[in-house]
């Protein structure tokens, strides 16, 4: 019974990644290598991030929201962006189009994130006899994270790879990328500063990810047009 629940939660957490890969043209162009490379970059980035956090951050005993600490955390969060930049620009990819490249990178990034952050708690927690909604919510969070990662990768590819984009859109692209990159800090603020419960936070994340996905899709389309 509990194994059943674990499987359910695992499907919710990791299923969308596989569905995304097989449903979109990514599978036809064999971009698995790119995704795996990105996942490795993610691991290295996570390690660097951990070292930074351990070096600069005080261990807070209280659950309170400390603005200074959170600012520091947010700036360390930009290590992620650096990692993504590396994955997008420095990795040698077999000649796949920019369109597919950012999707593969975002997918690999989100999958590595899910495995690293969610698999172990899921394995330990969801197999217990006690039933909680927590792991279902965590699975939904993973879905939102997937959308956010792909959006960020899309915005990143617009920023760093595309040269001839409309000048008016540049500030909007940077703004959006900034918002997406600070998303972890925003949710942390909602949870601890505002005292939101987990279901509310996850709902917000889902909504935010959908909005941002829509915006970045529009931006991407707008940048695509003049090149044709």
């Amino acid at each position: 019974m509990t194994m059943f629940h674990f499987l359910n939660c695992a499907i919710l957490t990791f299923g969308p990644h596989f569905v995304y890969y097989s449903a979109t043209p990514l599978s036809e162009y064999d971009t698995l290598g790119t995704s795996i490379k990105t996942a490795i970059v993610y691991l290295v980035t996570a390690l660097v991030k951990l070292v930074c956090l351990a070096t600069f951050l005080k261990v807070s005993d209280s659950e309170n929201f400390d603005p200074y600490q959170e600012l520091l955390k947010a700036s360390i969060g930009f290590v992620d962006v650096a990692g993504l930049y590396f994955a997008l620009t420095q990795l040698t990819h077999r000649n796949i189009s920019q369109n597919h490249k950012f999707q593969a990178v975002g997918l690999g990034w989100a999958f590595a994130d899910s495995v690293l952050h969610r698999l172990a708690p899921l394995w330990v927690g969801a197999r217990g006899l006690e039933f909680t909604w927590e792991y279902v919510l965590q699975g939904l969070e993973a879905n939102a994270n997937l959308v956010l990662c792909i959006s960020l990768a899309a915005l990143g590819s617009l920023m760093w790879l595309r040269k001839n984009k409309p000048k008016t859109l540049i500030p909007i692209i940077y703004l959006c990328a900034g918002i997406v990159a600070t998303m972890p800090s925003i949710t942390s603020y909602l949870r601890r500063g505002m005292g939101w419960k987990l279901p509310e936070v996850v709902g917000f994340q889902l909504l935010a990810s959908l909005v941002i996905a829509f915006i970045s899709w529009q931006l991407f389309a707008a940048c695509q047009r003049p090149s044709f």
Partner: peptide, 11 residues
């Protein structure tokens, strides 16, 4: 230990 559990139908 008292656990709140889900039924099979729910799963």
């Amino acid at each position: 230990n008292i656990y709140q559990v889900a039924s099979v139908t729910f799963d």
